[in-house]
C-alpha cells in the first residue's frame, strides 16, 4: 500500500515517468526494459547511436508506437491522454518541405483541437499568439513565406513555434539541429534554454557539445538505457554506448570539441 502511494507521488512529481518499457518492431527489439524518471522543469538530453531507440522512445512517450511492456506517464497521465500537454518537433529529414503552406499556417496548426472541426477558422487571438511565437523563435518576418522557401534552420524554428503554440508543459525534440548551419544551431540552443524556463525539454541529439554543456541531465540509449545522470561523459560510457572509439562518432561535431567534453 505504502509502495503504491510512493509510486503515485513520484508520478505526480515527474514530468515523465517510464517504467520497464519495451518496444518491438516485429521481432526486432527497439527498446528493452527502459525505466526513466524526468522531473518537471528538467532539460534532458538523449544520445545514442543510430538505431539505438532514441526516436522510438520519443514516439512511445507520445503514444505513437505500441508498447510491448511497461508504462509511461506524462505529467501524471498515460501518454495518449497527455498529448495536449506535449509539444513535438519531429525529425526534419522526414518532413514534406514542398507542401504549399505558409509559415503562419503551419504555426496555426499547433492550435488544432481534438477531433475534426467543421468550418474551422482560427481566432484573432490564435493568430496574434502565433505571430508572437514566430517572433520569439526569430522568424517573425517570415510569417507569409512558403515553407519550400525556408532554410533548414528557419524550417526547424517554424516546427518549434508550432510545437509551443498551445503552451505545452513538455517539449520533445528529435534532432532539431541536424542539417542546420552553426549559427542556426546556436540560435536553436538559446531558444531551448529559454523555453526550459517555463517547460520541461527533452532533446534527442547526436551533438555531444549540446548534451555536455547545455542540458541538465543526460540519458544514453542503445536499445537499453546505458546511462542516466549528470551530463558528464566519460570514455567508458561513450565507448560502451557506441561500441566504438569516440572519434568515430563525431556526427559533424569537431573532434576537439569531443575531446574537451569527454572526461578521460
Amino acid at each position: 500500500m505504502k509502495e503504491t502511494t510512493k509510486n503515485n507521488a513520484l508520478i505526480e512529481k515527474a514530468a515523465i515517468e517510464i517504467n520497464n518499457l519495451s518496444v518491438y518492431y516485429g521481432k526486432t527489439r527497439a527498446l528493452n526494459n527502459i525505466s526513466l524518471s524526468v522531473p518537471r522543469g528538467e532539460y534532458l538530453g538523449i544520445i545514442g547511436p543510430n538505431g539505438g531507440g532514441k526516436s522510438t522512445l520519443l514516439k512511445a512517450m507520445l503514444g505513437l508506437v505500441p508498447k510491448d511492456a511497461g508504462d509511461i506517464n506524462i505529467y501524471g497521465k498515460p501518454s495518449k491522454l497527455s498529448r495536449g500537454e506535449v509539444g513535438y518537433v519531429p525529425q526534419f529529414a522526414f518532413m514534406e518541405r514542398k507542401f504549399p503552406i505558409t509559415v503562419m499556417e503551419v504555426a496555426l496548426t499547433g492550435f488544432l483541437q481534438k477531433g475534426v472541426s467543421p468550418f474551422h477558422a482560427y481566432t484573432n487571438g490564435e493568430k496574434e499568439h502565433a505571430a508572437e511565437i514566430l517572433g520569439r523563435v526569430g522568424i517573425g518576418g517570415l510569417y507569409d513565406r512558403q515553407v519550400s522557401a525556408l532554410s533548414g534552420g528557419e524550417f526547424q524554428k517554424m516546427l518549434i513555434a508550432r510545437a509551443i503554440a498551445a503552451n505545452p508543459k513538455l517539449i520533445l525534440l528529435d534532432e532539431p539541429t541536424a542539417s542546420v548551419d552553426a549559427n542556426s544551431r546556436e540560435q536553436i540552443y538559446s531558444l531551448l534554454a529559454e523555453l526550459n524556463e517555463t517547460m520541461t525539454v527533452v532533446l534527442v541529439t547526436h551533438d555531444l557539445l549540446a548534451v555536455s554543456s547545455l542540458v541538465k541531465s543526460l540519458a544514453c540509449l542503445n536499445g537499453s538505457l546505458v546511462y542516466h545522470g549528470e551530463p558528464k561523459l566519460n570514455s567508458e560510457t561513450v565507448n560502451s554506448l557506441y561500441g566504438c572509439p569516440v572519434d568515430l562518432i563525431a556526427h559533424g561535431v569537431p573532434h576537439r570539441v569531443l575531446g574537451e567534453h569527454i572526461e578521460k
Binding site: 514534406e96 507542401f99 496548426t109 472541426s117
Partner: peptide
C-alpha cells in the same frame, strides 16, 4: 483546415488529437 494539417504532417495532427 484539418485537411491542411493532415496533408502537411499527419503525425503532428495525430498528436494534436
Amino acid at each position: 483546415e484539418n485537411w491542411k494539417s493532415y496533408l502537411f504532417d499527419e503525425e503532428f495532427s495525430l498528436i494534436r488529437g
